[in-house]
Design a protein around this nucleic acid. Structure first.
Lengths: 178, 178
DNA sequence: AAACACATGTAACACGTTACATGATTCA
DNA sequence: TGAATCATGTAACGTGTTACATGTGTTT
């Protein structure tokens, strides 16, 4: 259901067609969120049927590509969105991360390989962090919430890095004790 | 696929039947992970068909309940698990959190309600943190990896709390500037 | 007698991902 | 000419969740 309401949310910025929606998410939330057409187009159709958005076909005179289907929020859509936005979200679990899923079981595996995989993670997060920090400037103009979300991404990255490094030390040290 | 390999991982501790597997996860990883029988039983069946685990029916003489189906790892299962464990995991996205999903769009909603929802999150995370800290002692005997995962849970909780509190300040302050 | 813990299982549904099909325009 | 970009869409698949059905033994 989150995709449905995300679309309603994004249409608050401007009227969009499916392709733009994906693009918008990739440009603005690419570091923390992804969608694909298999989700977008069926949801747009459903939302229209429910009367939460309305579609107008853009006749592209001379422009490239097939006719765009521009969607905009209806009053009902705005209402439904507000209701969702004001509702209390269910609490979700951490540790859906594919790395952490393995990590719990590293005790049953090869310690050398575990260290390698930890190093891989460290490098990946370091790359992410650099990317996030460099993009931080571009995002500065947005509202507090979008800004703070970017900040959270950075904080989370930093925390993961220090945890990974600390963990690496402990694992490496544990090997000599045995 | 993660459930499949998680089962193989858990069977390294001891032979288990479906019910125990769920119980084990809830007791040991309850703060960060959940499964349900709809996943467990079909996966056990599949794993057995693939020859990665083997089943022996426990004849319960005089004991309560239906006969337990005890599963244990086969050599093929151990191998498949090791292969998975040593493989590089795909990187996953943060922000699959239902709260953060709403949070991005708080700019389009009521600021008072936003503050309330932030407060709700703060209270929830404070409860979690207390719970995690109190259980930390019980887990102390486990291996480095399980230990570190518990540590990560605590760190993550702390980070979220400080971020939420900082965010709350900024949002509240932003209201007066306008 | 009722509730609860033990134990196994499935069917329906919701959600998400991948891969493919289609087709016009623009640029190298 | 071929590749890239714009643009819409669907079918198959994989995974996860909810809710139900079934039944025994123990505790209140």
């Amino acid at each position: 259901m989150s995709v449905k309401y995300s679309i309603l949310g994004l249409l608050h910025y401007e009227d969009m067609h499916g392709y733009r929606i994906k693009e918008h998410i990739e440009k603005n939330f690419g570091y923390m969120w992804s969608v694909n057409y298999g989700q977008i187009y069926p949801n747009l159709k459903k939302l229209e049927q429910e009367g939460l958005i309305s579609m107008r076909e853009e006749v592209q005179n001379g422009k490239k590509g097939p006719p765009k289907k521009l969607y905009s929020l209806t009053d009902a859509g705005r209402e439904a969105f507000q209701e969702w936005l004001a509702g209390s979200p269910e609490r979700s679990m951490l540790l859906r991360d594919p790395f952490l899923m393995r990590f719990v079981f590293f005790g049953f595996g090869d310690k050398g390989r575990a260290l390698e995989l930890i190093d891989e993670q460290i490098m990946a997060y370091e790359g992410d962090l650099a990317g996030r920090l460099s993009k931080k400037e571009k995002w500065r103009t947005k509202d507090v919430f979008v800004n703070q979300l970017a900040e959270l991404g950075i904080e989370m990255n930093k925390m993961m890095l220090s945890w990974l490094k600390e963990t690496r030390k402990k694992v490496a040290a544990g090997g000599e004790e045995q």
